[in-house]
């Protein structure tokens, strides 16, 4: 369904070039969820925005391919992209208010999406909106369509955004930290909802998160990003059973876990790298506990270590 090859998105800022996404490749099949995981600033959101060709200036996609149903999105015209967005490709963001218009009634917002992409009457759009709100678990949708976004809780707002995203039956759903702003109880409800709708509709989903618990519960495939690169990709089962990259191992080791009492956590030393840094060797080197001489001189490539598992590390085999 989606195949991304060597995607590069750079920001040309006054301080220098920020290589936010620096050559990443992944694919997502129909009905499958790929989780994209990594620390703040590693390039997850810019990857998502690149797929929709919505990278803000001074950012630019400078290379690669984004094949959606075999067609390279980078060659589409802006009007062709507009027809895809919100229609065959939909997006849900962390902060639901960014996707909602504060002065428009909820029913009108959903109807607008439907009317934009489908040949239906306003009355049909209204009925379809009520049905969608019902599907995303909004109580009394006939009343809710007359309300404004600010009258709702964060969890209900995110359900509305999901209803809007699903309005036109997208084949690909991009969800950028859809539950990060929510309480864990509401997060669980929203993830359950997304999982159920995805199963029913067999959507391909790109789920951006920094929560490895969410990955374990909601995704089948996972890609770990670090400094604009994918450093490991694998099935969820493989990644948790045998993480191949020292960064992945570090992330898993640094988690406190419910029901386990440890004296100390094992953090990854050092800091999340600055986006302006450029690397000759491995970008993880300053924080890596397993360095060998070649790490500082050459940049490792992703290599297959097990069938279906790829690791970007000189020590991986």
């Amino acid at each position: 369904m989606l195949q991304v090859r060597d995607l590069k998105t750079y920001f040309f800022t006054a301080k220098g070039v920020v290589k936010a996404v620096d050559g990443i490749s992944f694919s997502i099949k129909k009905g499958e969820t790929l989780a994209l995981v990594g620390e703040s600033g590693c390039g997850k959101s810019i990857t998502a925005l690149s797929l929709l060709r919505l990278v803000p200036p001074p950012g630019k996609i400078v290379g690669g391919q984004i094949r959606f149903n075999g067609e390279d999105l980078l060659y589409l015209s802006e009007s062709e992209m507009r027809r895809l967005r919100g229609n065959r490709i939909a997006m849900v963001f962390q902060e639901p208010m960014t996707a909602l218009n504060p002065v428009l009634r909820i029913g009108d917002q959903i109807s607008e999406v439907l009317l934009q992409h489908q040949d239906i009457s306003p009355g049909e759009a209204r009925d379809a909106s009520i049905k969608l709100l019902h599907q995303v678990g909004i109580p009394a949708p006939e009343q809710r369509i007359r309300e404004f976004p600010h009258q709702l809780s964060g969890g209900l707002r995110q359900r509305i955004v999901i209803a809007m995203a699903l309005a036109c039956n997208p084949q690909l759903l991009i969800a950028d930290e859809p539950t990060t702003a929510l309480d864990v109880t509401i997060q669980a409800q929203i993830m359950e909802l997304l999982g159920r709708l995805q199963q029913q509709r067999q959507m391909a989903t790109l789920l951006i998160t920094h929560d490895l618990g969410v990955v374990a519960e909601s995704a089948q495939q996972v890609a770990i990003m670090y400094a604009g690169l994918i450093v490991e990709s694998a099935s969820v089962a493989q990644l948790f059973a045998a993480p191949g990259h020292p960064y992945t191992r570090g992330l898993l080791a640094s988690l406190p876990r419910l029901g386990e009492k440890r004296d100390r956590l094992s953090p990854i030393d050092g800091q999340v790298p600055s986006p302006l840094e450029s690397h000759t060797g491995c970008p993880f080197l300053p924080r890596c506990p397993d360095v060998i001489p070649i790490c500082s001189s050459r940049y490792p490539q992703l290599q297959e270590t097990e069938p279906g598992q790829h690791v970007r590390c000189w020590r991986a085999e």
Binding site: A188, A216, F240, L252, L258
Partner: peptide, 22 residues
């Protein structure tokens, strides 16, 4: 609350979720 916490271990059975709003 404890049930709602996603656990970083794949393949665990589903759990009873808290219904309703905060």
């Amino acid at each position: 609350l404890l049930n709602a916490v996603p656990i970083p271990i794949p393949g665990r059975p589903g759990r009873a979720l808290l219904q309703g709003e905060v």
